[in-house]
Amino acid sequence: MAITYRDPLEQLQRELDRMLESAFGSAGASAAGVYPPGNVFDTGEEYVIKAELPGVDPGKVEVNVENETVSFRGERTFDEPNRDVAYHRREREQGQFRRVVRIPGRLASETARAEYRDGVLTIRVPKAKETRPRRVEIEAD
């Protein structure tokens, strides 16, 4: 019996796992040594760059699109509790971050958009016109 995926996300997760495994040798994890890790997607018309940045003030994030690179930088800061507390666990980190992501294609940087929702930064950059897929009509008599 063929396995069918009811959830398109599940299908994507399998593909991401496969790509992570071939790039870093471990499925499901993330690249070592870079913060925040970023994923680059292609929709045909545009490139979509996503990065997980929970708890960041979007006003403190700067996004730049230039030639074939998308870069973003910012700072993650927390409000410390203003009362006597004892920490049981401290795994979340604060500080500065900066990433430069190279895109494998030419970009129409003037129409790039960025949004921050639910702790995920999403940058959408349309492809330069000449590199977009174009349907060519066939002329016939």
């Binding site: 996300l9 994923n39 045909g44």
Partner: peptide, 20 residues
Amino acid sequence: RVKPEDYEGLKPLHVEYGVG
């Protein structure tokens, strides 16, 4: 849970983290 619709129509080109 994350929303599947956030990833609709996206073909991964370069991957640094798993989504879930």
